[in-house]
């Protein structure tokens, strides 16, 4: 995987997830960060810190990104969500515009 094609997502606890840009840009917010005409710090460094998203949630979100891509390309499977994560996950989704 080339470095330019990936982006590093960092959770509140400092845990780093390296994912494909294509996957990360499922989030409209991340999409804007990485494509904005002026180059913000995120675009220069290829990493985004989310001080308000916990590792568990961010991990779930990354799984969702990939699941979403598969789903969009026609592979219709269930995406399991543990009930205890629901609320926080929704908050993050709202924030990430996913």
């Amino acid at each position: 995987m080339k470095k330019e094609d990936t982006v590093k997502l960092i959770s509140a606890e400092g845990f780093e997830f390296v994912v494909d840009k294509e996957a990360a840009m499922v989030s409209q917010t991340i999409h804007n960060m990485l494509t904005s005409p002026g180059s913000f710090a995120e675009r220069q460094h290829g990493e985004v810190t989310f001080p308000e998203i916990s590792t568990t949630i961010l991990e779930k979100i990354c799984q969702y990104f990939y699941w979403h891509l598969q789903f969009a390309s026609g592979k219709e499977t269930e995406f399991p969500i543990e009930p205890e994560l629901t609320l926080e996950l929704m908050m993050a989704a709202n924030y990430l515009h996913t």
């Binding site: 904005s36 913000f40 710090a41 995120e42 985004v48 810190t49 308000e52």
Partner: peptide
């Protein structure tokens, strides 16, 4: 002069 700005911070 935006190279010092973090999109995530502003957006958040």
């Amino acid at each position: 002069n935006i190279s010092g700005l973090s999109y995530e911070v502003l957006y958040r």
